[in-house]
Computed example of a mutant assay.
Amino acid sequence: MAYTGAVSPGGEPDVRELSHLRITKVAVDPDMSNNCYLLRCAATGTQVLVDAAAEADGLLRLVGDDGLAAVVTTHQHWDHHRALAEVVAATGAEVVAGAPDADAITEQTGVEVTRRVGDGDVVGVGDCELEVIALVGHTPGSVALRYRDPDGHDHLFTGDSLFPGGVGKTWSAEDFATLVDDVETKVFGRLADDTWFYPGHGDDSTLGTERPSLPEWRERGW
Score class of each variant (00 low, 15 high):
G5T: 09
A6E: 15
E12P: 07
R16M: 10
L21P: 02
L21C: 04
T24W: 04
D31Q: 10
Y37A: 00
T44K: 12
T46A: 15
T46D: 13
Q47S: 08
Q47W: 06
L49C: 02
V50Q: 13
A53D: 02
R61W: 02
L62T: 06
V63K: 13
G64I: 00
D66G: 15
G67Y: 09
G67C: 10
A70F: 05
V72E: 08
T74P: 04
H80E: 08
H81F: 01
E86W: 00
A89N: 09
T91M: 09
A93T: 02
D101A: 12
T109F: 00
V113P: 04
R115Y: 05
D119M: 05
D119A: 14
D119C: 06
G120C: 10
V122D: 10
V122R: 15
G126W: 09
D127P: 07
C128A: 15
I133A: 10
H138T: 14
P140E: 14
S142E: 15
L145H: 00
R146P: 02
R146F: 01
R148D: 04
H153C: 06
D154L: 01
L156C: 06
L156P: 07
F157P: 00
S161W: 05
K169E: 13
A173H: 13
D181Q: 12
T185H: 12
G189R: 08
R190M: 01
D193K: 08
Y198F: 15
G200M: 07
H201E: 14
L207S: 11
P212E: 07
P215T: 03
W217T: 02
E219M: 12
